[in-house]
Simulated scan of single mutants.
Amino acid sequence: MKTFRVGFGYDVHQLKEGYPFWLGGIQVPHEKGAVGHSDADVLIHVICDALLGAANLRDIGYHFPDQDPQYKGIDSKFLLKNVVGLLKENGFKIGNIDSTVCLQLPKVNPHIPAMQKCLAGVMDIHESLVSIKATTTERLGFVGRQEGVSAYCVALIYQE
């Protein structure tokens, strides 16, 4: 009998000029990029938190603290790969990922297939199991003013 578990992730990063914009494991062309201790890939961070939460393994900050210099500027795909390893060590498999990126600009939709392919490869799952949606906030709030990016994720994991 399979045991199913669900986890949720939420993250926010400030946007500033002069930074590269990493989203879903790929670099998206834009004049602003996300600011953070790592490469600030908000989508990967919420996926990590959703997976860790589902497995009751705390959160991304617990495993990869932003006070630790070894994670300064790190590629978030490395963090995700390690989270997937933790899941496997604890007997879990990924059922599916459902995520939403909130961003006024740039438009995310053209980049979704490349993000799905990248993230599926990192997690060693089929692309059809990685849902990425995008929305604006109709110019409201910090996302609407293009001051930041936020993302949400729900992940289903299971044990056989």
Results as ranks from 00 to 15, higher is better:
Lys2Arg: 15
Thr3Phe: 11
Phe4Pro: 01
Arg5Ile: 00
Tyr10Arg: 05
Asp11Gln: 11
Val12Tyr: 15
Gln14Glu: 10
Lys16Cys: 10
Phe21Glu: 08
Phe21Arg: 08
Trp22His: 14
Ile26His: 13
Gln27Ser: 15
Val28His: 05
His30Asn: 10
Val35His: 06
Gly36Lys: 04
Ala40Asp: 03
Val42Cys: 14
Leu43Gln: 06
Ile47Pro: 00
Cys48Pro: 00
Asp49Val: 04
Ala50Trp: 01
Ala50Phe: 01
Gly53Ile: 00
Gly53Val: 01
Ala54Pro: 01
Asp59Pro: 00
Ile60Tyr: 10
His63Trp: 15
Pro65Asp: 08
Asp66Ala: 09
Gln67Asp: 12
Asp68Met: 07
Tyr71Met: 08
Tyr71Val: 03
Ile74Phe: 01
Asp75Asn: 15
Asp75Thr: 02
Lys77Leu: 06
Leu79Gln: 06
Leu80Cys: 09
Leu80Phe: 10
Val84Lys: 13
Leu86Arg: 10
Lys88Ser: 13
Asn90Thr: 04
Phe92Cys: 02
Lys93Glu: 12
Asn96Gln: 13
Asn96Asp: 14
Ile97Pro: 05
Leu103Phe: 05
Gln104Arg: 15
Gln104Ser: 12
Lys107Gln: 13
Lys107Asp: 07
Val108His: 02
Val108Asp: 02
Pro110Trp: 04
Pro113Cys: 02
Cys118Ile: 06
Cys118Tyr: 07
Val122Arg: 09
His126Ser: 15
Glu127Asp: 11
Leu129Arg: 14
Leu129Asp: 12
Ile132Val: 15
Ala134Gln: 08
Thr137Asp: 12
Glu138Arg: 05
Arg139Cys: 09
Gly141Thr: 03
Gly144Tyr: 05
Gly144Glu: 11
Arg145Val: 06
Ser150Phe: 12
Ser150Asn: 07
Ala155Ile: 03
Leu156Trp: 06
Leu156Pro: 00
Tyr158Met: 05
Gln159Asn: 11
Gln159Cys: 04
